[in-house]
Amino acid sequence: MKKIIDKSEFISKLKNGMSIMVGGFMVVGTPENLIEEIVKSDIKDLTIICNDAGLPNKGVGKLISAGKVKKLIASHIGLNPEAGKRMSEGTMEVELVPQGTLVEQIRSGGAGLGGFLTPTGLGTIVQEGKEIIEVEGEKFLLEKPLKADIALLLGHKVDEKGNTIYSKTTRNFNPMMATACEIVIVEAREVVSIGDLNPDNIVTPHIFVDYIVKGDK
């Protein structure tokens, strides 16, 4: 199966109203070329799941500024005033989730789990509407798994089969998101031949990756 597609074919995979997980942490590890293609397209009403809201002109912040995001699920929006503005105006719904909970929800979604129990958020607003479960005398919140239609990731080196390695702190949410979405698309800084990557160093196994789009080195 040939996984390498061009940018126009990439856009054809998306539909209005889809849920999309976007890798990256404060835009580090975000596939900027894929984001740019969505900005240029007619795609809208997206639910975006990302660690944060990026910056007004970078990362998922570009999608927010372009008015393409109906709902954002993130742990932090403080460095993107545009996100805060749209939230208070009511033009974009924002669901704030503790960072460790968000990534574990995604991991659960991809790992076939029904959720997990965490002490994070006990006694805070985060607890509202959630089940509290006691295990050996300690209280935990039940957090449910999270999945999405599409994952957009940034790979540092990707082989033609889809095996992916990441660079330094660009890794962050990318490997978990690769497991939790129906269609997984990796923007590759560099596409290498099958066999070029040391199997011991591969972080995301190829079975998780559906499509590869060549990005910038």
Partner: peptide, 30 residues
């Protein structure tokens, strides 16, 4: 710019430093 802190600012890594995904990171924390 591939090596940043939680504020998205560039940092350096000391010898023996290590990078990992967010799930491992919060496993370390929790």
């Amino acid at each position: 710019w591939d090596l940043t802190n939680a504020g998205g600012q560039p940092i350096t890594m000391s010898i023996g430093g290590v990078c990992f995904d967010s799930s491992t990171s919060f496993g370390i924390i929790r």
